[in-house]
């Protein structure tokens, strides 16, 4: 009686594909088309919602403006908590976009039935379950905090590498590599693992049983977006302050 796994229905409902991509060739370069399609969708959602929210700005917000003001308040608070009252303002767009983009990406992977759109190869999913996306974002965070440090202190920024004691210089240098590495792999691993777990469960027990795991996936996705944005803020704050102390990196 266990042969239901073989029935074509279920296989097409829940097949796992990892490491297969829908390649586009641009000149001699290869890119992952499915990531770009999903990313464009996410960006379009963010832009359309922003346009709706700011189309008719009222002093007393209603509807979409209310929602987006809530989102803006949230990312402003997040940025202010991390970077501090004095310097947080210019960083709100960057960290806010990080949060909103990752959040919408993750939730689009969990909520939108991408499966219904068939690609010749690979499948549509959250853009954040592709390592290229997460590495791109975390490298941007690295660039951002180097930029913040150099802009604030010029070449004096390098002083923080030998600040408490020159003995820790290797570790301080190593940190600049571990930061983007941990940022990108945390996000990538969490989202990919979440989608795989849901996929495997759907493959095994197609109905209702995977729902709690899917809810957990929604929760994880939101938390990962928050963690990424928070850590980006913390790194920028660290570069601005330069006292070189450790923020806890060991989230989820």
């Amino acid at each position: 009686m266990l042969n239901f796994l073989d029935s074509p229905n279920f296989v097409s409902l829940a097949a796992l594909e990892v490491g297969q991509h829908f390649y586009w060739h641009i000149g001699s370069l290869k890119v992952h088309g499915q990531v770009f399609l999903a990313t464009w969708f996410v960006m379009a959602v963010l832009i359309i919602v922003s346009l709706l929210a700011t189309r008719n700005i009222q002093r007393i917000p209603t509807g979409m403006q209310n929602l987006m003001e809530y989102a803006l308040d949230f990312v402003r608070e997040l940025t202010r908590n991390q970077i501090g009252e004095k310097e947080y303002r210019p960083w709100v767009p960057f960290i806010g976009t990080l949060f909103l983009f990752i959040f919408v990406c993750n939730w689009s992977g969990a909520l939108i039935p991408w499966k219904l759109i068939h690609l010749p190869e690979g499948e549509l999913a959250a853009p954040t379950n592709d390592i290229n996306t997460t590495v791109a974002l975390s490298l941007l965070v690295s660039i951002a905090y180097f930029y913040a440090g150099f802009k604030k202190k010029g070449l004096g920024y390098f002083a923080k590498y030998v600040q408490p004691t020159p003995v820790l210089l290797p570790i301080a240098v190593l940190e600049d590599f571990t930061k983007p590495l941990s940022l990108s792999f945390r996000l990538f691993g969490n989202i990919l693992a979440d989608e795989l777990v849901v996929g495997v469960l759907v493959l095994l027990v197609p109905l209702f049983v995977p729902l709690p795991v899917m809810l957990l996936g929604l929760f994880t996705s939101a938390i990962q977006a928050l963690v990424f944005a928070t850590l980006a803020g913390a790194y920028i704050h660290e570069a601005l302050e330069g006292h070189g102390d450790e923020h806890d990196e060991e989230h989820a």
Partner: peptide
């Protein structure tokens, strides 16, 4: 799974 290509800079 870990194939880096032109997707990375374009995403950035």
């Amino acid at each position: 799974m870990f194939d880096f290509d032109a997707t990375l800079p374009l995403m950035a």
